[in-house]
C-alpha cells in the first residue's frame, strides 16, 4: 500500500505539469478560468491521496505512548528545561 501511495503522489506531481492546458482560456461554469479549475481539482485529489496515506500507510513504531512521552518530558525538565 505504501508504494501505491507514493505512486499516486508521483502521479499528482506529473499531472500538475499540465503544459496541455497552457493557453486554454475557457471559463468553467462561466466564471472559473480553466487553469484555476484544473489545479483546484489537483488540490482536492491531493487531499484524497493523503487521506489514503493516513488510513493505510501511516508510519509505525512512533513514540506514541503518552506515558513514555510524559516521562521523557519530565526527565528533560529535571535536566534543565528546554536545553
Amino acid at each position: 500500500m505504501k508504494y501505491l501511495i507514493y505512486g499516486l503522489i508521483i502521479a499528482l506531481v506529473v499531472v500538475h505539469q499540465d503544459v496541455w492546458n497552457w493557453e486554454n482560456d475557457h471559463l468553467v461554469f462561466g466564471f472559473l478560468p480553466w487553469t484555476l479549475a484544473y489545479h483546484a481539482c489537483i488540490s482536492i485529489a491531493a487531499s484524497i491521496v493523503w487521506f489514503l496515506a493516513a488510513s493505510f500507510a501511516w508510519p509505525k513504531n512512533l513514540e506514541d505512548d503518552d506515558t513514555a512521552g510524559a516521562n521523557a518530558v519530565a526527565a528533560t525538565e529535571r535536566d534543565g528545561g528546554a536545553a
Binding site: L12, V13, H16, T35, L36, Y38, H39, A46
Partner: peptide
C-alpha cells in the same frame, strides 16, 4: 491566474 498552480496546488502536495 497561473499563480495558483505555481504555488498553491503544488503546496497542497
Amino acid at each position: 491566474v497561473g499563480v495558483y498552480g505555481m504555488l498553491a496546488s503544488s503546496s497542497g502536495i
